[in-house]
Nucleic acid binder design. Sequence first.
RNA 1: GCGGCUAUAGUUUAGUGGUAAAACUCCGGGUUGUGGUCCCGGCAUCGAGAGUUCAAUUCUCUCUAGCCGCCCCA
Length: 423
Amino acid sequence: MSEHLSTDPYKGVRDFYPADWAKMAAMFAQFRATLAKWGYEEYNASPLERAELYEAKTSEEIVNEQTYTFTDRGDRKVTLRPEMTPTLARMVAGKRRELALPLRWFSIPNVFRYERPQKGRLREHYQLNVDLVGIAANEADIEIIRIASELLKAFGAKESDYIVRVNSRALLTAACAAAGLTGEAAKRYLHLLDKKSKMDPAAFEAARSSIAPRDPLELVENEAGASPELAHEKRALLDTIDALKRRGVGNAVFDATLTRGFDYYTGIVFEIFDTNPANPRSLFGGGRFDRLVALFGNDPVPAVGFGMGDVTFADFLETHGLLPKGDGGVPELYLGTPSAGDIPAAQAFADTLRAQGSRVFVNLTEKSLGDQIKDAVKRGIPFFVAYGADEVANQTVRMKILRTGEEEGLPLRDLPLRLRSGS
RNA sequence: GCGGCUAUAGUUUAGUGGUAAAACUCCGGGUUGUGGUCCCGGCAUCGAGAGUUCAAUUCUCUCUAGCCGCCCCA
């Protein structure tokens, strides 16, 4: 190993060999098909962004310690995008006047984070992002959460397989205000709340009382009437959750401890969890970010959306036996050549098949036909046809169905149609 | 950033203080116009470096990498 280059991919990132990418592509195809039904359009952008895009907009720890940031030769600070939402906000702000709101957009970007890889967490992953931009009303929140749920169902998941936890940053902010917490103190409290489910109750109480004399969470649960703002936000959130339940998301629940890590959320926040105890990870996370676009100097543009990582999602599908296989565009026909001299004619014949839509693999080796058949089997190609002097002379071929071993004789010109009818 | 475990052929694994075994894969041959069986042969400086020893793949240390926790979470 010392004198050769390593064949391993860089730490925490993956190679996608064709069989691997076929699985990813099958997953993405399902995303695209489902989102198309809801009128969502796909966009994309470069993974390189100005570092300042993330400063003070994402979360300090993430930016300082968990991004790939470097200085380019022109002395610009550059960051590999750790998430797509700031890019979306930038793109929306950049063409604010030309874009017809609302925007229903989605993307499947690769995003990067600099941290130690472990189960379900890598340094690069693909993340489906779905956003509805320009609608402040809770109809937008409902649509976005329904889509998240519908995506899972499109893969065959049942409502018992996952749970949709919903909360509201506006509600939490109102509760903090009612408890006398604002600014930094409120932020610290939210951070603590985020960890509550993993903490010992006594430890939480101890930490909480040092920040907040009165627990805002208690106000949310028992004394919403203490502040009109708080009562209003709680009512609004419960209405939204009720609407979700009535409209196809029967497994939506209110969870007052859900906060999400990003500072830019302003309203509803939600996460979808696998209910299988073996895979207790958050699958989707999202929320409303009504002030992000305005950071670019425009008028505020309300927006709500979510992100979902391919690694945890594939784990979910696998756990529940729902992973689509995907053939990855394996060729339909292996065109064998009795001798190397037959290759040009075989390619020419293959051209006529390709022109009619067939996926054809032409042998380029000098292997025997027997070995070529073995090769076809190994590649998972279903049909084999030898093309040489005999076939040209007779204008017929013998097509071998490798799965069964049967052979069919047929005229050359019928081959495309035969391929289309499958095995 | 902290901790635990692991590292032997392309892959998955066995094994030993006296330079390694198997299965599958791959390559070649038996078998140069039609596969899946079978048979034969080939493919490993045992992660890197240092130390102990007559001798290290094996023991020790350092490094590197991978996996798994913690932290944090997109």
